[in-house]
Design a protein around this nucleic acid. Sequence first.
DNA 1: TTTAATCATCGTAATATTGCGATATATTAT
DNA 2: ATAATATATCGCAATATTACGATGATTAAA
Lengths: 110, 110
Amino acid sequence: MGATKTDLFTKEQNEMAAMAKALAHPARIAILQYLIKKNVCITSTFVEELGLAQATVSQHLKELKLAGIIQGSIEGASVCYCINPKVWKQYKALFNSFFKDVNPAEQECC
Amino acid sequence: MGATKTDLFTKEQNEMAAMAKALAHPARIAILQYLIKKNVCITSTFVEELGLAQATVSQHLKELKLAGIIQGSIEGASVCYCINPKVWKQYKALFNSFFKDVNPAEQECC
DNA sequence: TTTAATCATCGTAATATTGCGATATATTAT
DNA sequence: ATAATATATCGCAATATTACGATGATTAAA
């Protein structure tokens, strides 16, 4: 036990959960917010900005990259990260459609 | 080590991450989708629906309750769960504002 | 070529999550 | 009163996440 039973759920449910998981850490939120604000690609000023060890930051970046929401390109000795606009749009759309279908007025609990 | 260093981040960043965490499991997505679809309060038909053990489902419900996104009220021998529309709106607003600020056209990576 | 700087990855420890059986509690039915 | 039903919680095992130091690989600077 201990592992998530992904086979019990639909592809969409697993995808949605995976997206949420990518955002489920304040460091990763901070990284994304920084990228949004600067709009420009940034190397690892992140380490200074976040106050976490370089290895830890690298791990968070890896997760975001794995989720597809950011991309990095080698720029000399450093690496330039930025938001992947296509994937960002997908996230936006999926979260939007997930949240839109609830009409608060109709929600009358028992 | 191992624990998230919440003190390094802003309240908003921690909140956003906590919200995402609540959604970061397919079972919890499934529970929420079911509640959205039925619109009506439901007891634990969830156990049948999800295919997870009763104890496990109860734990997921607890997490969603802790996050505030659902609420349960005792209905005889069973418990009636439903979405908390206020918190749902908060989630919606926060995720919306998080995702809206990226202009894909401006995102030109290095 | 040596040195410094920038990252990624490995190994490891601490902690958190997931899942379930067993048990406890409360309510309803008999 | 007893049995059945519905849930929550406890305790535990398996796995995942978080964090960091150390190390390796790559590039820029001296």
